[in-house]
Amino acid sequence: MKFIKYFLAGTLFGIILIKAEVVSWFRIQEMFRFQSFHMYGVIMSAIVVGMISILLIKKFNAKSIEGEVIKIEPKKFSWGNVIGGIIFGLGWALTGACPGPLYALVGAGVYVMAIALLAAVLGVWVYGKFQHKLPH
């Protein structure tokens, strides 16, 4: 039962992803061709709202509803950010979907994206298998 809140949060996020059309292959193509402001507007306004939220949370030492002080782990740089990032981008433009949209599209009736999702799981597994042989 303690997980139901995360299911509901996910549902809300899924609805937003579809309604924003950021899950659409057409929108992703439009973005990479610089032919509309839509995707840039979504991403940039999301970052700004997230940034203000985090600033306020830190300023007031806010606690979660479970009473813990909220803390966010910093990200560490590795060359994986660069090499993996480029590979991710190649896949993003092919499928027209990043991980969140892959899930949302399966729900929205683009059922073949379940295969793309399985391929993504396989991709993660193969990365895990060869992690120590890759430059980081």
């Binding site: 090499i83 590979i87 896949g91 991980p99 892959l102 793309a116 993660v124």
Partner: peptide, 18 residues
């Protein structure tokens, strides 16, 4: 679909996030 999905998965883990 398949190669694209694989790149998304492999890339996101290698890049440590999506």
């Amino acid at each position: 679909i398949v190669v694209g999905g694989f790149f998304v998965g492999f890339g996101t883990r290698y890049a440590d996030g999506c």
